[in-house]
Amino acid sequence: MKQHEQVAMVKRLLALRETRRDERMLDEVVTIPVSKYTDADLLDRELASAFTRYPLVACHSSALPEPGSYVTSDWDDFPYVVVRGDDGRVRAFYNQCRHRGARLAAERTGSVKNFVCPFHGWVYGLDGNLRGITRAHDFPGVETRDYGLAELPAAESGGLVWVSRTPGAELDIPGFLGSFHDDLVTFDVASLVPYKKTKVVKEANWKLLIKTYLEGYHVPYLHRDTLAFAFKRGVIAYDQDGPHIRLSAARTDITALAAKPEREWRILDGVSVYYTLFPNTFFILHPDYVSINTFWPLAPDRTVWTHEMLYRAEDFTGSAGQSGLEKRFRFTNDAVFDQEDFAIAEDVQRGLRHGGADHHVIGLAEGLLAIFQDTIDARLTAPHDTMTGRPA
């Protein structure tokens, strides 16, 4: 988001504050069947489409600081390892020895010179090539060149590392994200420093969890003791690019920003900017820190949720800075996300088991819920470019 685009967005939000209404998203009230959150066959189709045909966020670039640094998957259904090679390039492989399938990297993160199988000691280089077979004389005719690790598409772009479940695919992340890739570059996401990451299983559908982020209607009620003050008289404007959504939410301090000359306007000084990076990442830009949330389905009513907070090093220095980071993390991760947003989502999911209604009613201010749902549904059957998510 270039500076002139930031100014234009602030003006959009200031105009909406005058009307005390969010930007219009729907022309009418719509409904969403509750089967979207309970149907096992539908989840299988989502996994085969949204989670297989498109790039997925693996981590922030800072997780791979040097050659040999690696990160493993948070999702057992997609057991990859991403590693930075001696040439600086990021590569991804199935985290499985080609001998008898043992997991090579057991820890979530680490650093190695080579991957050594813990089962029988086969050795693989950072480029995935098989370097050595123990007791090679027991494998006559087996050539190391034929048994390198199974490689997966991987790319590093916009400060994030991406992987795909489609072997052989060419990843074009700028093309996939469109104008939102420019946002990641403009906001210098690559320079962020990691603070803390959590991984929790939530008893709710992956879409139900993401949708808690996509409307401000609930803020004065669910978040009355947490976020409500920061977003008093808050309004929302949104943009779409391909399958992705950008949601800009005015904070209370936008009025102080508006008092400055336009040339000094920086959107994060008065606005929090949220992105759904299709299909399962929710990326939140605050003035001094960033939250990356990913949602990995286990079942229609169970999801792995990961949350990583990153920050700008110059904004949090010394012990006082670290104390401030911890306070922000507890507030964001524990109080807002876990105990409010996702606790209510789990409560909703429990209720779905017992009937009472076969659909949810979506009001005009909740239009992004329907837009996000339609984006997922459209890719179940309609042909789309598998690397950009746009109509083929």
Rank of each mutant, 00 (worst) to 15 (best):
H4P: 06
H384A: 07
P67K: 10
T226K: 03
A313K: 15
V142W: 11
V123C: 12
A228N: 12
Y94T: 03
V57S: 05
V200W: 09
P243E: 06
R91Q: 06
T38W: 04
R266N: 12
T38R: 10
P167H: 02
L47Y: 01
G88D: 07
A357L: 10
C117E: 07
D183N: 10
R312C: 02
E264L: 14
V71N: 07
N293R: 11
A92L: 04
Y147C: 12
L47P: 03
H286P: 02
P391K: 12
G132F: 07
G389A: 07
S73R: 00
Q373W: 08
L222Y: 00
T212M: 15
T388E: 05
G101Y: 07
Y124F: 15
P279R: 05
H120G: 11
I284N: 14
G363I: 06
A105I: 02
V193P: 03
R131T: 01
A357K: 14
S61G: 15
A392Y: 08
E107Q: 13
R12L: 04
P67F: 08
K211E: 15
R100E: 09
H223T: 03
S179E: 14
T212G: 15
F176G: 00
V71T: 12
R17I: 04
F231G: 01
V185I: 14
D288P: 02
I133G: 07
D239M: 04
F316I: 05
R53I: 02
P153M: 00
I267C: 04
A357H: 12
Y94N: 03
E156W: 00
W162S: 01
A136N: 08
Q6F: 02
G234L: 01
V163T: 00
E151V: 03
D182G: 10
G168K: 04
L368W: 02
V348M: 15
V83E: 00
I173E: 04
Q373G: 05
D377V: 08
R98I: 03
R24G: 14
F180I: 06
A92D: 00
E23W: 07
P118V: 09
E170Q: 13
D269V: 02
V304I: 15
A40G: 13
T186V: 14
T52Y: 13
D22V: 07
T186I: 07
Q240L: 15
F93M: 04
L126Y: 01
H223L: 05
D146Y: 04
S179Y: 03
C97E: 05
Q349L: 05
L277M: 11
